[in-house]
Design a protein around this nucleic acid. Structure first.
Lengths: 118, 118
DNA sequence: GCGCTATATCAGCCGTGATTGACACACTTG
DNA sequence: CAAGTGTGTCAATCACGGCTGATATAGCGC
């Protein structure tokens, strides 16, 4: 206990001479934000979302651009799809080619969840 | 299978009958965004940043709120500090207590980096 | 039908990162 | 000064997630 300052105390309201930590603070719910951040933490997934901003692309294009294997790209796209951030459309004329495109509504909601903690 | 329309092909310029994938797309630089996303992907760190929005807090408050150990909280805070997202100030009167606070400028830049890929 | 292509799925391995447990440091109080 | 408190650091451990390699499916052309 600081027993000096016989007349005037430290007048700061910001931090007094006795710290009183609060142990009953409510823990904020960050499950949604952390799930999205975990998706964005991978460079391949982040690159895919960025590349998709100028239109749909197929798996082989991602694989070539990021020097990754097609199955790994497909795995990353499956996670983005499970989170609802991307959709798939088949190419008419050759339905083997699956084009991925952004779900802008879901991505906007994801950005809001991140902004809620930033 | 719709095999009709014997004369005219599908006239859409959006997706023709022959896909031509582009293999020379530039790979976007996502290093900054992925680094920040990796920080936010941990629930303790995300919770710390959220809790700090209503003012500075000390290590023991985080540990109590998230039911974590002080040394682990200190580890997470060290990473947030290394990224420049939080600052430290010592309590005057009892300098053992280290209060963490948000660096709003750095956090705003982090949010911009994430918005750049979302 | 058959082969070929584009994509998807999955067990197993492996590396990164969080937690553990112990210790060290800085500061205050007696 | 010593004891106690709040925090930081670090080797060892452990768990989660991406990669590998193989296999599977769907659609196209012959």
């Amino acid at each position: 206990m600081p027993t000096e300052t016989p007349i005037s105390m430290a007048p700061q309201a910001d931090a007094q001479s006795a710290p009183c930590p609060r142990f009953d603070l409510p823990a904020p719910d960050v499950t949604e934000a952390t799930a999205i951040a975990a998706l964005l933490a991978d460079p391949t997934r982040a690159g895919i979302l960025t590349l998709l901003r100028d239109g749909p692309h197929c798996v082989c294009e991602f694989a070539a651009t990021f020097d990754a294997r097609e199955n790994n790209v497909s795995n990353h796209l499956a996670k983005l799809r499970a989170a609802g951030l991307v959709r798939t459309t088949r190419h008419q004329g050759d339905a083997r080619w699956i084009y991925y495109e952004r779900d802008e509504d879901a991505i906007a909601r994801a950005a809001e969840a991140l902004d809620r903690i930033l």
